[in-house]
Write a protein that binds this DNA or RNA. Structure first.
Length: 285
DNA sequence: ACGCGTGCCTGTTGGC
DNA sequence: TGCCAACAGGCACGCG
């Protein structure tokens, strides 16, 4: 399940494949994979990809008019392609003319300056992923974008304290993209274990020491996971088709019933905020 | 404003 | 061995 470290890895592996390439055309095979607010993917034709960034779990491909500007007013020319992989989405560069797969939802045809071409597929078995081609003004109309919380790797303790104030279950707060952007079920559980905090604890009731421990755990877990190119449970692959390796370092996720690596007590499983949650009843208080 | 339950979607898993 | 309910999970949405 792509969360911040997986999306960061996709961004890093995708960028060299597409940066500087011109979009020659687009095809949508499943219209529901395109966000209702999006400009038509066809409006990307003629634009060049100038870079690839990440914000939370979103992949952002910046686009700009090339040497021969396409017709259209600024209001209808996208500046960014935002892609959310959700659970099973993948961005896959393939040779030009490659046939779509059973789970291809849309693709872009890309051309380099020297005339070589390729096709960038968005494949997504579960069909939860979305794409939004947007202007800056359009992005601001997107509630999800506008309300995204800060990046956890750029967050200080004082701001973290404000974000957690009045919140109930701390795990629910971590999963809320309006609190911090990019955390999903895996890294919520891993961070809470590393910080020694029970996932059900009211977030607003954590003291300064606990908040510091949690913020530090988030930073540590995310940084380690990025260094391992993310976690691959089943579906996740980067833009080169490679799996991550951080799943081999999980302390709790998917390990219920197995011994806690810290204390040896068996890890327990419960449901918090509607999500499967694995934790150590002995280490996490 | 917060939090909970449900639906979306499809492949995989586990129980009988 | 076969079938089917349960499950996985991020987010939108409706409700209290």
């Amino acid at each position: 399940m792509p969360e911040l470290p997986e999306v960061e890895t996709v961004v890093r592996t995708l960028a060299p494949h597409v940066t500087g390439w011109r979009i020659a055309g687009a095809e949508v095979l499943r219209p529901s994979a395109v966000h209702p607010l999006s400009l038509p993917l066809g409006s990307l034709a003629g634009l060049a990809v100038t870079g690839v960034r990440r914000r939370g779990k979103l992949i952002l491909m910046d686009v700009a008019p090339g040497s021969d500007p396409a017709p259209g007013s600024a209001a209808t020319v996208p500046t960014v392609i935002a892609v959310h992989l959700r659970m099973t989405g993948r961005l896959l560069p393939r040779p030009a003319g490659s046939a779509p797969g059973a789970y291809t939802r849309w693709f872009l045809d890309l051309e380099a300056q020297d005339g070589t071409a390729q096709r960038l597929f968005f494949d997504d078995t579960r069909a939860f992923g979305t794409v939004l081609a947007a202007t800056p003004a359009l992005l601001e109309q997107w509630d999800f974008w506008r309300s995204l919380g800060p990046e956890p790797l750029e967050l200080d303790e004082a701001a973290f304290a404000v974000l957690l104030r009045g919140r109930r279950a701390v795990k629910a707060a971590l999963l809320d993209q309006r609190v911090v952007a990019g955390i999903g079920n895996i890294y919520a559980d891993e961070s809470l274990h590393r910080a020694g905090i029970d996932p059900r604890r009211p977030a607003g009731g954590l003291d300064a020491r606990e908040r510091r421990a949690l913020l530090g755990a988030l930073r540590d877990v995310l940084t380690l996971a990025i260094a391992q190119c993310g976690s691959s449970i089943r579906d996740y692959r980067d833009a080169d088709g490679n799996a991550g390796a951080f799943q081999n370092s999980f302390a709790v996720y998917g390990r219920d019933g197995e011994p806690c690596r810290a204390c040896g007590h068996p890890l327990a499983r419960m449901r918090v905020a509607g999500r499967a949650t694995v934790y150590c009843p002995h280490c996490q208080r």
